[in-house]
Design a protein around this nucleic acid. Structure first.
Lengths: 364, 364
DNA sequence: TTGTAAGCGTTATCAA
DNA sequence: TTGATAACGCTTACAA
């Protein structure tokens, strides 16, 4: 066989490299397992064992093989390995976007936990588009992922169907919902926003505005809005339609929202519940500009507890969530599933309200 | 063959599934290409063509194959495909950490650009540890990545040797250095900090402090410090050793640094150059606490131009870098290399100084 | 345009 | 403990 690592051979070999009807052998310059076997004077099976079941090989042989591999600069090819075994050592995660720190750190947590078990992570971003998420999941299945994590439940049924059809263990992250058909690893968005709402109602607020991310195709945000609504309802309250604003999770949206709310005719809200700290920071900033006293005239809440939120004047009341931990827990949950361990249905990760200066008694 | 998708067969088949000396056929319940071929009544080659060179197949046959694939719920297995062709359709990127937005958005840019060409991205985080970076690169090579991006040049020689040995096109991102042996796609850290320093010198500052990330194993930060130093030197100036502070890129480090600097005996700096906006935001915040007037008493600069930096009082002078674009450019550069297009040595991405309120004339 | 069959680099079964 | 070899699921050179 005309391998680069073979001993020098007559030119005629080139012709012999062609099999009767098959194609010519490719010459990549890369050594393969059989080269190592030849150099070490053992069979391919033995070389394989050295790397997969080392203690089934005598120390002497093992050393010879490792030496040979080193000289030839060889390491196992993952595609070949995946094909021959049933394991790909690949897991996948689909997140909406890396531009949001909460998802980035979730990926970070999964990555670390999987790496400790020699599993590499395929990353896909759906850009909040269910269709893209489905495409990405299909691509990952084709790549033979052994496990998958997807953010949220708001995905096409085909997505979960495919995962089940191919028996790939998966977890829904970031969101935890009682009664979900999936293994959820995250927090209860509904409860978290109910808690925020109660916190404000406790201060005597009765007129609320909400500045939040787009609800479309986003079960987490929908749950949050539902949490706010049902809590208010229990107190005989509701958010006026014109006080319900959806937009990007940016400082700019927060600023624009407050300005718009303040220009509206009629009664002004005394509390604004924001979809995250970026939006809330924008509201705080615009309030300063408009001369609105916080919390005297207006209470503001965020979500995520960015480092910045402890530093603003006034400091921001928000909810702390450990997304890195969510990633780690999800990875461990999936690893357990791969190990055939009895599976828990999921984990509810706790959130912690950080009551700070931006919320206070209602003046009105 | 005992495939789940095969027509019902006599029980005897189970025995026949064993080849004379080989192992039994695996029964995964998953259809494979040959199942599709059988169902469509064509050869395996034809099925393959339908997906790889569709116009070499008659419309009639193509339709039959696609129908069969649909019924069997089949799609090509990436490992098999990678093994048979020479393409894996995988690229890799190694970044220090996802916790820093600049790297997260770089990954985001690469991901998008690669996805448009049907290439999936393997993600690795080195946690600023050269040894981990090397391990990750090796893992990616084993997985058959077709191209790689690594952040920065400060990596073990073996890392780049391995990449070259296996002829995997790679790019060094985030940093651009004239005369680098690698294809660099990023900005010139040295020049960027030289520009910041000149900006401050132009305001008459002569006593500087630097609050920056750890320089160890980090060529980008080293280049920044060198940029500051050489610029000062040209003006006969230097940073006193006690005014040179290294630490995490956090608000907390910024705050602690300013407090420490202000407690130091001797002449105080009139300008502080920070390694990024987080640190600078901390300095700004602590200055407010300590009653230090900015920029009257002290000028402060950041780096990265976070959205927040436009919103603080005073607003922060900083440098804008488009890291998402760096990711996109890197991906395109690597795609060009894969396409065999004439390779540019790299790209120098521009940075733009955002002169804002936190810098001004030196009062001293 | 379509079919045949070797070959991609491993693992795993069975026999020695 | 080690070796021989089929099989993993696909692509591709060549023949038809």
């Amino acid at each position: 066989m005309p391998r680069s690592s073979d001993p020098p051979a007559p030119a005629a070999v080139t012709a012999a490299a062609r099999s009767p009807t098959g194609r010519a052998r490719r010459n990549t310059g890369r050594s393969v397992l059989s080269d190592v076997a030849k150099l070490a004077g053992v069979s391919t099976a033995t070389v394989s064992r050295v790397y997969n079941e080392p203690d089934k090989v005598s120390a002497n042989v093992r050393e010879r093989v490792e030496q040979a591999a080193l000289t030839l600069n060889w390491f196992p090819n993952a595609a070949g390995r995946a094909l021959a075994s049933t394991r790909s050592h690949i897991a996948g995660i689909i997140i909406p976007t890396l531009d949001d720190q909460v998802f980035a750190s979730q990926v970070s947590g999964m990555q670390a936990a999987f790496a400790a078990r020699d599993i590499t992570l395929f990353l896909g971003c759906s850009n909040y588009d269910p269709a893209q998420a489905l495409v990405q999941v299909r691509a990952m299945l084709a790549r033979g992922v052994e496990a998958m994590a997807v953010v949220g439940e708001a995905h096409p049924a085909e997505l979960f169907d495919a995962l089940r059809l191919y028996r790939v263990p998966y977890a829904v992250t970031y969101a935890y919902r009682e009664g979900s058909p999936h293994d959820c690893i995250g927090f209860d968005n509904h409860a978290a926003y109910a808690e925020i709402t109660e916190h404000l109602i406790g201060f005597g607020h009765r007129s609320f505005a909400v500045c939040i991310q787009p609800t479309r195709d986003n079960d987490r945000v929908q749950a949050r809005v539902a949490g706010i609504r049902s809590t208010l309802e229990r107190h005989g309250l509701a958010v006026r339609p014109e006080h319900m604003l959806e937009g990007a999770s940016t400082i700019a949206f927060g600023r624009a929202s407050l300005r718009a709310l303040w220009q509206l005719p009629g009664e002004r809200p005394t509390a604004i519940i924001c979809g995250n700290d970026h939006i809330a920071l924008g509201v705080l900033r615009e309030a300063e500009e408009l001369g609105i006293a916080i919390p005297a005239q207006l209470s503001v809440t965020g979500f995520d507890d960015l480092a910045m939120s402890r530093e603003t004047r006034p400091t921001l009341t928000t909810m702390r969530v450990d997304t890195y931990e969510i990633g780690q827990l999800a990875a461990r949950h999936l690893l357990d599933a791969l190990d055939g361990k009895p599976a828990r249905k999921g984990y509810r990760v706790p959130v912690a309200l950080q009551a700070r200066e931006s919320t206070g008694p209602c003046a009105a």
